[in-house]
């Protein structure tokens, strides 16, 4: 009896597993289908695309569209591809992420380990910043950028992203440092370490997981940003998201789908790369604090 019931349990276990895997596979296919279409389209020639089937693999693989998208596609009148804008985005994103993360860490440090009167209020207001929609800050921000003489510059966009991201980065680090043992700070005070030494030598080196989380979060948000880019940077200083939009909208005559797809994938690559490299830590970091170690 027990043998047969075990057999039953085994079989229903397998059935269950088959069901779960089918659901997972179907979901994955649905999610991956657009990416697949983009990829195959970018590797086809225009004639082949006109032949019809979107899902079909390319009969003849060509990298022409990729080269064109990168180096010679026309955005309006200027036919130098998206490469310049790709570098623009890097020049905006890397400093903005670095500065935003560092400032967030610093805020978190002060808000948890050097509490002052009214620290809850300051933190509350910074939290509030997380809930302000992009659109609301557009006008005041452009005004401020104008006053600072940073309108239409890369540094201007860096500033915008740092300020807008500060609420989030502070939130991340504050919650992480909240669980960071006070005794470690006290020990370093007794050891003679000062305010900045404690931050640089004790706190930051032990913030790996939350730094990864913050960097991924900031990087994806800033890299993918369109609104700020479109509003505060134009022409040569535009980020790649804006350039992509211009490319798709400005092609005269035939729509070069293959070039568009290649450009879109190029624009998405850095965020993909960040996820692949740091994704494991992202999950771990999100769970940090729940387990002490």
């Amino acid at each position: 009896m027990s043998a047969s019931s075990q057999d039953n349990a085994l079989r229903s276990g397998i059935a269950w597993r088959v069901l779960i895997y089918s659901v997972l596979i179907v979901t994955a296919v649905i999610y991956l289908a657009p990416l697949f279409v983009m990829l195959v389209t970018s590797l086809k020639s225009l004639e082949e695309i006109r032949m019809g089937n979107m899902m079909a693999l390319p009969l003849q693989i060509t990298f022409e569209p990729w080269l064109k998208a990168w180096g010679s596609a026309c955005l309006g009148l200027d036919c130098n591809g998206i490469s310049g804008y790709f570098w623009n985005s890097l020049k905006i994103t890397v400093p903005a992420v670095a500065i935003g993360t560092l400032l967030g860490a610093f805020n978190g440090y002060v808000l948890t380990k050097w509490r002052f009167r009214g620290h809850q209020w300051v933190f509350g207001m910074m939290l509030f910043a997380c809930f302000i929609p992009f659109q609301i800050v557009l006008l005041p921000m452009s005004q401020v950028l104008g006053w600072l003489g940073l309108a239409n510059t890369t540094s201007g966009l860096v500033l915008v992203h740092v300020v807008y991201g500060l609420g989030f980065t502070t939130l991340f680090f504050r919650n992480f440092y909240e669980a960071f043992p006070d005794e470690l700070i006290r020990a370093s005070v007794m050891d003679g370490a000062g305010f900045f030494t404690i931050f640089g030598r004790i706190l930051l080196p032990n913030s790996g997981p939350i730094i990864v989380v913050t960097v991924i979060w900031q990087f994806t948000n800033i890299w993918n940003d369109f609104l700020f880019g479109a509003s505060f940077a134009s022409g040569d200083t535009a980020p790649i998201t804006v350039a992509l939009n211009n490319l798709v909208n400005s092609s005269t005559g035939v729509k070069e789908y293959n070039v568009h797809m290649a450009a879109a994938i190029t624009a998405a690559l850095p965020t993909l790369l960040v996820y692949v490299v740091a994704g494991r830590y992202f999950v771990r970091g999100l769970m940090a604090g729940s387990v002490k170690g």
Binding site: P181, E183, L184, R186, A187, S188, V189, M190, D191, G192, A193, I202, P205, N206
Partner: peptide
């Protein structure tokens, strides 16, 4: 740090890094 005192903490408070 100027009191010439050293302290051993309950959690040991060793610097993990």
């Amino acid at each position: 740090s100027k009191r010439d005192i050293a302290m051993v903490f309950q959690s040991y408070a060793l610097y993990p890094n």
